[in-house]
Amino acid sequence: MPQLSSRHWLAAIALLTASQVQAAEVKVDVLQNRLAHPWALAFLPQDQGILITLKGGELKRWQPGKGLSPAIRGVPKVWAQGQGGLLDVALAPDFAQSRKVWLSFAEAGDDGKAGTAVGYGRLSEDMQQLEDFTVVFRQQPKLSVGNHFGGRMVFDGKGYLFIALGENNQRPTAQELDKLQGKLVRLTQDGKVPQDNPFVGKAGVRPEIWSYGIRNPQGMALNPWSKALWLNEHGPRGGDEINLPEAGKNYGWPLATWGINYSGLPIPEAKGTSAPGTEQPLFYWKDSPAVSGMAFYNASTFPQWQNKLFIGALKDKDLIQMSVDGNKVTEDGRLLGERNARIRDVRVGPDGYLYVLTDETDGQLLKVSPAA
């Protein structure tokens, strides 16, 4: 294995297999089933329930004791093919006043291909409609035939919105700064380009770009202790990563990767596990769990979960528990493997419990807590 910097030496810990680590038992309550491939969830304030996106194009509200609402009207038409569809959902930081609900989704182009788009609408007082939905961002050009849309959104608490974008399974585009494939973009809360973005004013470069060299981002969250943004992404065959995306930096794909092609051959463009001018991951997995949604635990409800990071796994059908110490992270174990279900999203609820979505035809909303 190549020598890593001191910042990244803990990536080697990821070589442990799930059988080598054990996690504490958990209690799981099934709150809702019969969800057709749910993708993301967001908590409404004042115990008004949870918004859930379904990949096929529906946004619904779940409430305790009442179950699932009919589809909320006013959601944009989505391109629901392959990995595309209705993706992430996030409440605007000023939701109490604006009632803005943000959605990311796959949007069709004119040539049978698609790209990620982002917009917002105003949630009506009766919670039955998104009014005046406005698209403020479109991934350009539209290149996906069904792969690697990304779509996770995070408001950073400083007035900015980050959107993680896949490279549409077009590897070279992640390094091409005139395209929005394989990029993390940063916008204002109104969907405009901040003037202090790292590439603003540079010829031939998209000004929305914050960082690049990303393959297929599937989880993103703000670290509550450092306030830094963390992002995870799928590698090819091996090499799933956690990165700390910083302004203007290159995270390597496809020039540097800890994975290989699905054929078993090296990635054609790869220079190895590192390449000049690129950043090493904070953490990587030699064998890809197919990471998905991620959430830091900073609630007081369960002290044993303090300073933990939870990440869903699609291929491994599990919930990964990790310990965080500054910018060092180690895997503790897996929590939900016995359910044999693809984990798509995980969030910490206002009550301090974990809420998890399983990405299945008959998907579930789970409420998870330590067993004791």
Rank of each mutant, 00 (worst) to 15 (best):
K77H: 11
I343F: 01
S274G: 11
N147K: 12
G363A: 08
P194E: 03
L10A: 15
D94I: 07
L44G: 04
V136T: 15
Q63G: 00
V291Y: 04
A117R: 04
S211H: 01
S292P: 05
A42L: 02
E167L: 11
M153E: 08
T53D: 12
G159S: 01
M322R: 08
W285E: 06
F162T: 06
A80T: 01
G204Q: 11
E246N: 11
P276H: 02
L231E: 03
P2Y: 14
F149S: 12
V89M: 11
V346E: 04
R237P: 01
N216E: 04
A313I: 04
K113I: 05
L10K: 13
P303R: 03
D362V: 10
L86G: 01
Q139D: 14
E58Q: 11
L366P: 03
P172M: 05
V346M: 05
K286H: 05
I52D: 03
N243F: 01
L103Q: 11
A106W: 01
G57R: 09
V75S: 08
P172I: 07
A275F: 02
V118E: 00
Q170N: 15
W258D: 04
A221F: 07
D111W: 06
F149Y: 14
D132C: 06
G277D: 05
T188I: 01
L366T: 04
E246M: 12
V193H: 01
G121H: 03
A372T: 15
I72M: 12
N261V: 00
W39L: 02
R152W: 09
K286V: 09
N232W: 02
L51R: 00
R7M: 10
E241V: 03
P276A: 09
Q22F: 13
L265Q: 14
L255S: 13
L319A: 10
